[in-house]
Design a protein around this nucleic acid. Structure first.
Lengths: 186, 186
DNA sequence: GTTTCTTACCTCGAACGCGATATATCTTGT
DNA sequence: ACAAGATATATCGCGTTCGAGGTAAGAAAC
């Protein structure tokens, strides 16, 4: 998703992609050559991108990669109907968020945000005692676990606030779009 | 790490472990049977844990797992000198944090927190233009990327504040411990 | 009394990601 | 002239993880 997402902005070569994906994924998590290049080849085989050899600006020749219509469609499908993991895994979610603007339709964008919002809503119970009963933060003995839950709650609130604001704005924009296309609404 | 960390609290059987690890990892990310049971076996072969068959409280018989001294040592090594990924990947970091209290020595605990703190300090630049120049948040066109960076900055600050407070407390406690063990310090 | 559900454990094949390794090119320093 | 270093692409083997499938046992439903 990150590869197609970046290419949707403008054509890039593999080496450049590597750095951009590395900076994006969570915080700087380098992505291995052995992961990147086979994935590019797979996307090429699936006709999601095309390859043009160009002289390297500094050194060895580059393969400039461009996204195709098929690739754009694939990217939109991934964004519109993300796998569960993209909503529940923070790292993956942030990657998705970085490319959600490629989904163009504000109503569809809002729907994805709402799915994340729904996930964040269910209160996380992280720790349990011997009997399986949940332990509230104030009963935790480890200061690290206490901090973990504090941080978790605080960051969740921050994101929920942003999500609500954003969903509101998107739905309003979608409303205008409907009125402009379909004339006056009763 | 999560398996040994949970067993360090009290003995558990595989099925129970599965649920606890699932609740912990990030937020609820189920861990597959095909991952859990072979891992348990591997830890058993490495003598990190022992297994006792017990009648199931509800249904099929359970294998109660108990951590050994070797397992405890291994856990402490992992906690004391974590791989890079455990500091840079939020999900992994939170798992580590959940068990850091098993590292007992406050000075060692503070050192691990300081390593995370150091990582969070380097300012994250997530997006770049065609030429490779970083794009500041206010120049981003996508509201999602803007929100992403906002959330990222905010959550980082929250965690940094907590880390600093915690490191201070731990070092103070370590200082007292030294004075109690080694008498007056000049 | 038989199906169905939940608990509980285990294995296998496929897919995935990483690190090591290799290669080619151009620039810069000596 | 030549070595070193950054750029740039690619492959292979290894270990890890997942998902699908299978087994077994007790409890609850019909």
């Amino acid at each position: 998703m990150a590869i197609l997402g970046f290419l949707r902005d403008f054509p890039l070569h593999g080496y450049d992609l590597k750095n951009r994906v590395a900076s994006l994924a969570g915080h700087v998590r380098p992505i291995a050559d052995g992961t990147l290049y086979p994935t590019i080849k797979k996307l090429e085989d699936a006709q999601c991108l095309t390859r043009r050899t160009a002289p390297g600006s500094v050194a060895a020749p580059r393969h400039m990669l461009e996204i195709t219509q098929i690739g754009t469609d694939q990217l939109r499908r991934w964004l519109r109907d993300p796998e569960q993991g993209f909503l529940t895994d923070d790292n993956k979610w942030y990657v998705l968020l970085a490319f959600l603007h490629h989904l163009e339709n504000p109503r569809e964008q809002a729907l994805v945000l709402a799915r994340r919002r729904e996930f964040l809503d269910q209160p996380a119970q992280l720790f349990f005692d011997e009997l399986g009963a949940p332990i509230p933060p104030e009963r935790l003995e480890s200061p690290f676990r206490k901090g973990l839950m504090q941080i978790h709650r605080s960051t969740n609130l921050t994101e929920i606030e942003w999500l609500d604001r954003q969903i509101g704005e998107l739905n309003q924009r979608a409303g205008y779009a409907v009125r402009q296309r379909g004339g006056e609404v009763s």
